[in-house]
Structure formats: structure tokens, C-alpha cells
Design a protein around this nucleic acid. Structure first.
Length: 344
DNA sequence: AACTCGGGGAT
DNA sequence: ATCCCAGAGTT
């Protein structure tokens, strides 16, 4: 059913959700505060990330960087360290840039208007709406994956959520049920989408708005939302040389393009004088959302001190050891490789 | 408007 | 094996 066919009054749905949220909302660490800094960080951490997966990262991040100023004054590498294992590493780089932005452009005071929050690096329409509604009583629905799913089911609407027009389309739909307290409403939609209106096997029997849900009454919850675009992973081969000597090994830092932005990695190539020291070669398979990685890692133990120091002098790389490596952010498969090397 | 960016848990 | 998650930036 399209929105222009909806003649019933759905406004009470929003208020029902607020009541449900008050009694059934999840108890999360960022629920006790309206500090825009903390809400902002949590919104960034939990982009495309499940609560259970990011909870420790969020707590550790807030503990180390409790406010904008602390974050802005930190080194980028340390911010990346606290993002280690979370994925989508541009979020860490951007959150750091945005902190500097707040110091420079807003005298360290978090902007309180949607349009200003939207200017922050790494903050899009969703996050700007979330922060402005939760912290500053902004009246803007925070349209995310939960909104798409809940609204498409509530109105039994087959609008393609993978369409680029989905955001504005579901924004309009959201206004049909938007209550006065938009901040709590936005969070209620997230909890409903997470706990009740789940992608698969939704718990419609416990849903506070199942009486109004057109997908429920027409038994179409399993067909909604409609998403036509599918992402397919392509194969990618990577090769690394784990060059080490006496508990030290050589690393370099990735660029901020392609995958694993600015994370540390082993050397992608060596010179001929190191080849005799290759002990063995291990292949690691690792799946990313858009890539099936096949990583070949050559274990190079340099037993000659002169060859070791000569290579370091002539090549761009850093020396680290197993303890110090814990203080840098490596891609997951390389992190695993280091951990396995420790056991040998 | 389409493409790209991680990692992990649920099914 | 497939889907999807408190999305945003780039092309």
C-alpha cells in the first residue's frame, strides 16, 4: 500500500511506541545521557554495527576520549587503535577530524542545530537527526535500517529500500506517526526493529503496534521490506612478507583509500637479499562484505644482522615488536597472524 | 545514482 | 552460504 492510499489516522502509533519504549527499551550505557558528544560517538560506533559488537569499543573509547577536546588533541593512530576490529575505519579518521572541526569552528561547543551537526565530518542525515533529536529536541526522524523495516511493514509498503530515493520516501512516511518526543521515538524505533520487528522471524505477538501493522494483518511480514540490490563479493589476492628478527618485525601504514584505511600492515614486497630467509608461506582466507580475501603471508626470519639493518636503512618501514604491536591497529587477519606467531 | 568501505552474529 | 546491522563519502 502506498502512502497516498493511507487515510487512517496513524498518529497514535508513535505514542504507543513511546509507551512501549519506556517500559521495554534496552538499558544501554548511552541511554542515561544527553551529552551530545557521547551520543555522537555512539551513533558513529554503531553505524552498520550491532550493539553487542560495538559496546566494548564504545565504552573504551569514551573512557579514553571523554570529551571533544581530548579526542581532538589525540594522535590519529591512537584513535585508530581504539577502533581496532570494528571495521569501516574511515569512521575513526572522520570522528577525529570532526572533533578538531568542533574545536576550530565551534570553540569546542557541540553544535545544537541539525544543519550545523550535519556539517561535521562523518555525520550524515541519519546521525545529525539522531543527535539533534536526542540531545536538542530536534523534530527530525532518524531514518536507518530499522525505520525502513518497521515502516515498510507497518504500511505494508513494497517501496525498494535499496533505492536512492528510499531515504526521502520513508522520511515522509515517518512523519505520519511522528509524536512530540522525537528523540525517544527515534530510539524506540531502533529498539523495536532490534528486539521485535527483526529482519527474520519478527516477534509480532509481542509487538505494541501489531493491531495497526498492515503487513501483520495481511501476513506479509516475511516479504517486507523489499530490497532488490544485492552485494556480491569479488575475490582479491594479497601478499605479505612477515619480516622479523629477534622478536621484532617490520610494518608500514596503509593509505586512506581502499580497504583498511591507515591501518598497519606487513610489507607487501621485499628485496632479493631477503628471499633466502623465507622460512615458509601460509595462506589465510578472510571474508569481507565486498571481498573474499586470499592472503599469502611469507614468514621471513632474517638471521643476518647486516642484511636486517641494511634492509631497514634502504626501505620505508617501521620496526615494532610483539608487545608494541598491540598498540597499533592491524587488519583482523594480520592481527590473527601476529597472535598465532606469539604461540610458536 | 551507483559504488565502496569491515567485521561479526543470526538464520 | 546469505543477510544485515543506530550509514557516509566518493565517483
Amino acid at each position: 500500500m502506498k502512502k497516498n492510499k493511507i487515510n487512517t489516522d496513524f498518529l497514535h502509533v508513535g505514542n504507543k511506541l513511546l509507551i512501549w519504549y519506556k517500559n521495554n527499551g534496552r538499558d544501554l550505557p548511552f541511554r542515561q545521557t544527553k551529552d551530545p558528544y557521547k551520543i555522537w560517538i555512539c551513533e558513529i560506533v554503531f553505524q552498520q554495527t550491532r550493539i553487542n559488537q560495538g559496546l566494548n569499543h564504545y565504552n573504551n573509547f569514551i573512557k579514553r576520549f571523554p570529551d571533544v577536546k581530548t579526542l581532538a588533541e589525540a594522535k590519529e593512530d591512537e584513535v585508530l587503535l581504539y577502533w581496532k576490529g570494528l571495521g569501516y575505519y574511515s569512521r575513526a579518521i572522520n570522528v577525529h577530524k570532526a572533533a578538531k572541526q568542533i574545536m576550530d569552528d565551534y570553540h569546542g561547543v557541540f553544535p545544537n542545530q541539525y544543519d550545523e551537526i550535519l556539517k561535521l565530518r562523518g555525520v550524515g542525515k541519519y546521525t545529525a537527526a539522531a543527535v539533534s533529536s536526542i540531545c536538542f529536541d530536534g523534530k527530525i526522524p532518524a531514518i536507518d535500517g530499522n525505520f525502513y523495516r518497521v515502516l515498510s511493514r507497518l504500511f505494508a509498503d513494497d517501496f525498494d529500500i535499496s533505492s536512492t530515493k528510499a531515504f526521502s520516501y520513508f522520511s515522509e512516511l515517518a512523519h505520519l506517526i511522528l509524536p512530540e518526543n522525537v528523540g525517544d521515538f527515534n530510539q524506540a524505533m531502533m529498539d523495536l526493529g532490534s528486539e521485535i520487528c527483526k529482519p527474520k522471524n519478527p516477534v509480532c505477538g509481542e509487538c505494541p503496534i501489531n493491531e495497526e501493522c498492515l503487513a501483520f494483518s495481511s501476513n506479509k511480514t516475511s516479504e517486507l521490506p523489499v530490497k532488490t540490490k544485492k552485494v556480491k563479493a569479488e575475490d582479491l589476492h594479497l601478499k605479505y612478507y612477515f619480516v622479523h628478527r629477534n622478536g621484532q618485525f617490520l610494518i608500514q601504514q596503509r593509505k586512506d583509500d581502499f580497504i583498511w584505511k591507515k591501518l598497519f600492515e606487513f610489507l607487501p614486497s621485499i628485496t632479493a637479499d631477503l628471499e633466502p630467509f623465507i622460512k615458509n608461506i601460509k595462506t589465510v582466507n578472510h571474508k569481507l562484505t565486498h571481498k573474499n580475501l586470499n592472503i599469502e603471508i611469507a614468514n621471513v626470519e632474517v638471521t643476518s644482522r647486516s642484511v636486517w639493518s641494511d634492509f631497514i636503512a634502504k626501505n620505508e618501514c617501521f620496526i615494532t615488536d610483539f608487545d608494541a604491536s598491540q598498540e597499533k591497529s592491524f587488519p583482523k587477519p594480520l592481527e590473527n597472524y601476529i597472535q598465532n606467531s606469539l604461540k610458536d
